[in-house]
Design a protein around this nucleic acid. Structure first.
Lengths: 205, 205
DNA sequence: TTATATACAAACACTGATGTATGTAAACAG
DNA sequence: CTGTTTACATACATCAGTGTTTGTATATAA
């Protein structure tokens, strides 16, 4: 029984991607073999090599599948309704990201893989550049929001929107990092929302 | 010409550690082979295996050699003279760490390896726990400083030292992350000190 | 002075992973 | 209904890396 339907083939492809994510998480990207992935997906290496020419391609496919929609959502949150209440939109952006991590296991796993289960060398080094350019976009959007907030007198006087934006972004990066590393969920995860509120409260006039 | 002096042997050991750090940085920890390290150190695998039983042991030796002194320095900065001017001591702690990164290539390389050239699985997963417990210590010290600052009326009213401490720590984590990833040195590195000043200025009464 | 331990180099045995090539049954196009 | 392509499974060839063992010249202890 070989030669599945096109739809069945797409299903296998998806199963392979899911399997890769699961194995990457436990074994790390580098130590994960095509055999590992195939076993986890319930297929042979033949199937994996049919859909992806190598591990790097599979990695990128897995990453883009969860990351691209996520980035879209981020952009939406930060740009939409930024006019009315800019500080609230920043806060909602931060909270929304954490909430997404809490709700979606695949996204949570992706973050963990990207942060502590992947070495950014050779074929993977360009991913870092993508991440950096994505960060630049986020900073720009946050800065825009702070600028609007300042115009509306919602900030303390003498605060530079550009510096505030980077400060918030660094807070964000640190939060994501520690949130992911706090696998036990005992230290930081329960306090994430409170920390975001506190961070934003510091800025409000 | 075999059988070196004890001192010469210690030198080779150090050369191997240095070589490991250099190769880890370019090839990533997992892809680095004992052969790579030996070649970089100008010895054979025999020498490497003589000093270290495997790559994991070598990794831990390299990490501890630069990390332990660093942690000591951190503790000193945060605890010493914390009484007089707590906010300044926090700022000095942050600036000092960045300055250390700028001045010491080995430490800079270590951070880069730990952040984006290492997968925290199996033998390496305990390193994460060490990092987390180290973070707890830093947070505690920062909180202590903020508590003192509040007693001395240097903070705005209604600010919780505990939340401030975590906020600063997350800023710190984010800063280190982005600083290391900004290898080109064009984006964040030149502004690091300014960002620290701005971060602390937000808190001052 | 001699015996022994040291600090490696060189050689060996073994395993595991990769990529490819081949086989094949069923889906699909005509 | 038939030829061709698809979606895999299976088998093969190759190689790189690991850990260990052996060899050996010399430092060092006695």
């Amino acid at each position: 029984m070989v030669r599945k339907t096109k739809e069945e083939a797409q299903l296998t492809r998806q199963q392979i991607i899911d399997a890769a994510r699961e194995v990457f998480l436990t074994r790390g990207v580098n130590r994960t073999t095509m055999q590992d992935i195939a076993r986890q997906a319930g297929v042979t290496r033949g199937a994996v090599y049919w859909h992806f020419s190598n591990k790097s391609e599979l990695f990128h496919a897995m990453r883009e599948q969860v990351f691209l929609p996520l980035i879209d959502r981020m952009d939406d949150t930060l740009l939409v309704a930024q006019m009315e209440n800019p500080l609230a939109s920043i806060e909602q952006f931060l909270c929304g990201t954490i909430q997404t991590l809490e709700e979606s296991a695949p996204i949570r796993e992706m973050y963990e893989i990207m942060m502590i289960k992947c070495e950014y060398v050779d074929e993977f080094s360009d991913v870092l550049q993508q991440i950096l350019s994505n960060c630049s976009g986020i900073i720009d959007n946050i800065e825009l929001a702070y600028r609007r907030a300042k115009e509306q007198g919602q900030l303390h006087a003498g605060q530079d929107p550009a510096l505030l934006a980077i400060d918030t972004h660094l807070f964000f990066v640190g939060l994501l990092n520690m949130w992911v590393k706090d696998t036990q969920g005992s230290q930081l995860r329960p306090r994430a929302m409170q920390l975001i509120a506190s961070h934003m409260a510091l800025r409000r006039a």
